[in-house]
Design a protein around this nucleic acid. Structure first.
Length: 398
RNA sequence: GGGCAGGUACCCUAGUGGCCAACGGGGUCUGACUGUAAAUCAGAUGGCUCAGCCUUCGGAGGUUCGAAUCCUCCCCUGCCCA
């Protein structure tokens, strides 16, 4: 059910949804050699949430895996302690082993929804870094210069802007590079922001007389609103989002990113996508309908067709026809209660102040009747629907 | 070790004795409108026993009728000198 049931043709695999391959000729040669290639991909078990942006790369891995190659998944239990500087986020929280293990498991659960577990080798950095000595650190660090590190845009920027930059962080690319030596990688995958780190691995392999790995970079998918995909903007779709949630999020996406999502996250043939783009530009098709199609495709890929159908039904019911959702949480209201208290207790407001605000702004409805008095007392003798805004519902039962 | 500049709400930032629960932007929420949970526009956005009160501006003390703002010590960051 995940991506890549019918292998795409090689040319499409190497171009669609690919930002850059270093070098494509070399990679083609390896792919044609008949050898089983070792496809490396690493992750830090610090932020285990995979979103639709990661999905782009995972699909690529899956597609190549379907050609018979082996995926080597590296659990970055050491690099996680540094924190990837490419993210420029200087949180150097040392994670305890328990957390690392739990995070890694969460990550893999999501990872293997797309990638074939049977043809994946999972390796932990601690296998080799656990016995690293200072002498090993010398050997590794002596091969790179500060100038090379400062060529990394994120390092340079942070340095120039006077932001903190620890020596430990400079080690990040080196550790990642060494992983390639440890697992003997043929190709390493990552987003375009990983170019520097992956190239460092290629360099190191060359220096140590090994065949340099190829660099396979996938584009960074833009967020639902067209801006950079980021948790702060809340414009992501998580791989573990339930179907209804995915459906809604896709429907809230900006019109101008629809095509990009089709290209990068679905198997819809390019010819068909180009046709959609023309139709949309000409105004012959409502972007909303394309988004509905996109939502169906994605949910079918990540769940199944039945889940997609149900999610669509629910969306149409609640948001297009403005009817009530088929399921909503229940709250037992045994006696009369003030509306504000009720909102808080039913989990529809985080605090009483917020509850008052919602009432005063006209966002609270009982059986579709606006309640505008914060002093109102609510009592029910039969089930009633308490609603906040467009999408939060609670069934009140006596 | 010395000098200088900083540490403000979920994030980024303004504020340098009372007009500060604290400007502005992001995020979030609500409303209007719509083609949709798009776009756009408007409002809201610490808490509470809510015309008032309580807790917030790195931490702990202090000055003052009154402090995010002044003083002392401490912690953290950057730059310069050694």
């Amino acid at each position: 059910m995940p991506a890549g049931e019918e292998p795409m043709d090689l040319e499409e695999i190497l171009t669609r949804g690919v930002a850059e391959i270093i070098t494509k000729e070399e990679l083609l040669e390896k792919l044609r050699s008949g050898r089983t290639l070792r496809l490396k991909m690493g992750f830090d078990p610090s932020k285990p949430n995979l979103h639709i942006g990661h999905y782009v790369g995972l699909r690529k891995i899956r597609q190549l895996q379907d050609l018979g190659h082996t995926v080597v998944l590296i659990v970055g239990d050491w690099t996680a302690q540094i924190g990837d500087p490419s993210g420029r986020d200087e949180s150097r929280t040392m994670l305890d082993p328990e957390t690392v293990r739990a995070n890694a498991e969460t990550y893999m659960r999501q990872f293997f929804r797309v990638v074939d577990r049977g043809r994946t080798e999972v390796r932990w950095q601690s296998e080799w870094f656990g016995k690293f000595t200072l002498a090993d650190v010398f050997h590794l660090t002596s091969r790179f210069t500060l100038g090379q590190m400062m060529a990394h845009e994120t390092f340079r920027k942070r340095y120039e802007q006077g932001l903190p930059l620890s020596l430990m962080e400079l080690l990040y690319p080196l550790l990642q590079a060494y992983d390639s030596i440890a697992v003997d990688a043929d190709v390493e995958f990552g987003g375009t922001d990983q170019k520097f780190n992956i190239l460092a691995g290629r360099e190191l392999q060359r220096m140590l007389g090994k065949t340099p790995q190829n660099v396979f970079l996938v584009p960074l998918l833009v967020g639902l609103d067209g801006r950079k995909m980021s948790k702060t903007f809340n414009n992501t779709i998580d791989l573990v989002d339930p179907p209804e949630e995915m459906y809604g999020k896709i429907m809230s996406m900006g019109d101008d990113v629809i095509i990009e999502y089709f290209i990068l996250t679905t198997d819809v043939p390019m010819a068909e996508i180009e046709e959609m783009e023309r139709e949309m530009k000409a105004g012959h098709v409502n972007p909303r309908d394309l988004k509905m199609r996109l939502a169906r495709e994605l949910i079918t890929q990540l769940y199944n067709a039945e889940a997609a159908r149900k999610a669509e039904e629910e969306f149409v019911r609640v948001f297009q026809r403005r009817e009530l959702p088929s399921e909503m949480p229940e709250f037992r209201l045994s006696g009369p209660k003030n509306i504000v208290d009720l909102l808080v207790e039913a989990g529809l407001a985080a605090s009483k102040s917020e509850g008052r605000r919602l009432v005063q702004q006209g966002g609270v409805k009982l059986n579709e009747e606006v309640i505008s008095d914060i002093e109102a007392t609510i009592a029910v003798t039969e089930p009633a629907v308490l609603r906040v805004g467009k999408r939060r519902f609670v069934q009140l039962v006596p």
